[in-house]
Design a protein around this nucleic acid. Structure first.
Lengths: 169, 169
DNA sequence: AGCGCAAGTTTCTTTTGGGAACTCACTCGC
DNA sequence: GCGAGTGAGTTCCCAAAAGAAACTTGCGCT
């Protein structure tokens, strides 16, 4: 299906989707974040086809989200581990998980919870404003054109931003 | 490519990916979150194929992430708007955007910024602990089995959680 | 010598995605 | 009154992925 490449696009969301924009990659990242670092362990856990897992790990390695660390030669065998960039992606996966916890497991509670080591509490990782620390609810923040925004390349977005700016006079 | 369905899986990330697990859906949600609500406007903005956009909007409507609001009959025409559930997904998209801002636009700054109405600051939406409000960095939180965790169905994960629990004895 | 494991690779079939053209049902300008 | 324009899809064809399952390679064990 000759997928379109997003890496050239002037949009942070699109460029990120160039890395995690399919149904398996985020799950692979989740497993790696949990410390499941071997090819076969990830494959068994996810039930992903071996071919697709190979492709995903290659792509993640190219994007420097994952590094392959040899743990034996002959035959060469590797651990897959998240880089710093990969750990940042794991935070995105955490956001996906929160959504699922809220909307898909309302009844019996989520399958996995997180304990925040900083305060010891069982935590609900939430998207917050880094300036004031308050959770951001939809509508609590408004989009503004940033330094590299180009109205020529994104006229629909420019119009949308104008409408929003007008509404907040 | 006969996609596997994730909605039955006992994993919050997988179930969420059943909704947003492709390269277009999160971008559609971003556009809707910015107030771009018409079929053609979204299509023009993203350059997505009309067929795929139709499919995505249908799927999002089925998942109750989006509602179709008629704004004229004859011919019937609709605005697409995010539901409350959709707004929560928009927070996930915000996390995707933050990652892209950090790792794909280091040089010239991001194309879109957000102003938090609560405090007025230009905000970097960050994943934080809801209990103490501190940003969560990778490694700052540890996963624990939740109420609906089933070691039988996820032995690799159970083993990984055990390893982590041991490490924090 | 035979079995099993880890990590891929190959082959074959089934779906999807992209692109572009086509269809309705109006509405607007002249 | 008529052709152009618009909004929202729909239809077709083709190329690129995904799935499943079998095959490969190098050991280590017994």
């Amino acid at each position: 299906m000759q997928r379109s490449t997003f890496s050239e696009q002037p949009c942070s969301v699109a460029r990120t989707l160039d890395i995690v924009g399919d149904r398996w990659t985020p799950l692979v990242i989740r497993d790696l974040a949990l410390g499941i670092s071997r090819f076969d362990a990830v494959q068994r856990d996810l039930g992903i086809s071996r071919k697709v897992l190979t492709q995903r790990l290659e792509a993640l390695t190219e994007h420097e989200v994952v590094v392959r660390i040899p743990y034996q030669d002959n035959p060469p065998r590797y651990d897959y581990r998240l880089t710093e960039k990969g750990n940042d992606l794991a935070m995105v996966v955490l956001a996906l998980q929160q959504f699922g916890d809220k909307w898909s497991f309302g009844e019996n509670g989520p399958p996995i919870r997180w304990q925040h080591l900083g305060c010891g509490a069982i935590s609900t990782p939430t998207v917050c404003c880094d300036a004031c620390g308050v959770p951001i609810r939809p509508g609590d923040a408004i989009p503004l054109p940033g330094p590299s925004f180009d109205p020529e390349r994104a006229p629909e977005i420019a119009a949308a931003l104008d409408r929003i700016a007008d509404a907040f006079g």
